[in-house]
């Protein structure tokens, strides 16, 4: 039973991270119907920025908590900046082009960013400092769940609540929903569509960066390739929950996290990634609209 709970919590943590990255996918897809292939890379860049900032600050002798705060802030700022720039350069000129073109452009961006970090930094795995402090009140159940895991799960929940609030109740959220429904009509109603799309990319990238910092300090290792696999898995989570839906992304992330965790725990750990990919293929074949998504019929 203890093993079960261990797997349960590790699945919950994994799932939360997938959910944080999936939020970006789902929001971007909801608005411009593009799979932002470079989203995983934004997450990776967030983790690298945090690593670099934390490294510099720890040499300057800052204390742990301020390092965590500043590194996370830098990661969020830089990831958002990258997300914004990528949209302006690689997607905006293609908004009226066929969807295939934008997707190929996104794949190109992903390959470009991966190798840019590879060349500018290193191809080795870098040790990432564990920035999250240990909580004392967790000691009795420390063998089941670590404080880093608690922080990850709580952060995901908070981010999801904030995002849902933002989308439901603010002016920006209203503009986002309008743009998602009908871009041209929203424009006629005075919504600045370009700005809404930019904001969507910025918010999505920021959540990915938070995920990047949390997972990197939990696992303790990063390299330039982490974004690719994480990106595909987060995409799986987004599709699983129903792409375009914020609670769906979180639900999908959790389901995927548990699937992976239990499958590796009880079946075989060699095929960790195979389970995720198989799940993705199966959902897309049997229920492409996802758990919470609604199926749409194509109109002519």
């Amino acid at each position: 039973m203890e093993y079960f709970f261990e797997l349960f919590f590790s699945g919950l943590t994994r799932g939360s991270i997938y959910a944080l990255i999936a939020l970006g996918y789902t929001m971007v897809y909801g608005i411009i119907e593009l799979i932002n292939f470079a989203h995983g890379e934004i997450y990776m860049i967030g983790a690298f920025t945090a690593l670099i900032v934390a490294g510099v600050l720890s040499l300057l002798g800052f204390n742990e908590l301020s390092i965590l705060a500043l590194a996370a802030l830098a990661a969020v700022v830089y990831s958002s900046a990258y997300g914004y720039t990528i949209e302006k350069m690689a997607y905006k000129p293609l908004r009226k082009a066929p969807r295939l073109s934008a997707l190929i452009s996104a794949i190109g961006m992903s390959i470009f960013l991966q190798n840019y970090v590879l060349l500018a930094q290193t191809s080795d795995f870098l040790p990432f400092p564990s920035l999250i402090p240990d909580f004392h009140f967790l000691e009795p159940i420390a063998h089941l769940i670590t404080s880093a895991e608690v922080v990850i799960v709580v952060t995901t929940a908070v981010v999801m609540v904030i995002l849902s609030f933002l989308i439901k109740f603010t002016r920006l959220g209203k503009a986002m929903r309008a743009t998602a429904q009908d871009k041209d009509m929203a424009m006629l109603m005075g919504v600045n569509v370009n700005r809404v799309i930019s904001f969507t990319f910025i918010i999505g990238s920021a959540t990915a960066a938070i995920g990047g910092v949390l997972i990197a300090s939990h696992i303790g290792m990063i390299n330039f390739y982490i974004g690719f696999i994480a990106g595909i898995k987060a995409f799986t989570a987004a599709v699983l929950g129903g792409i375009g839906s914020v609670p769906g992304a979180v639900l999908g992330g959790l389901v995927l996290g548990w699937t992976e965790s239990f499958a590796t725990g009880y079946v075989s750990s060699d095929y960790e990634d195979v389970f995720a990919f198989t799940l993705l293929v199966l959902i897309l074949i049997f229920r492409p609209e996802g758990i919470l998504g609604r199926s749409t019929t194509q109109k002519v």
């Binding site: 799979i35 997707l103 595909i232 095929y271 990634d273 993705l280 897309l284 074949i285 492409p288």
Partner: peptide
């Protein structure tokens, strides 16, 4: 066969997943 019903961008991801599954196996 399985991917026939999928639209363009989903198809891309499924084929990508398929390629990775083959390599991992």
């Amino acid at each position: 066969f399985p991917v026939l019903r999928l639209r363009g961008d989903y198809l891309a991801i499924v084929t990508l997943g398929f390629g990775e599954i083959i390599r991992l196996v």
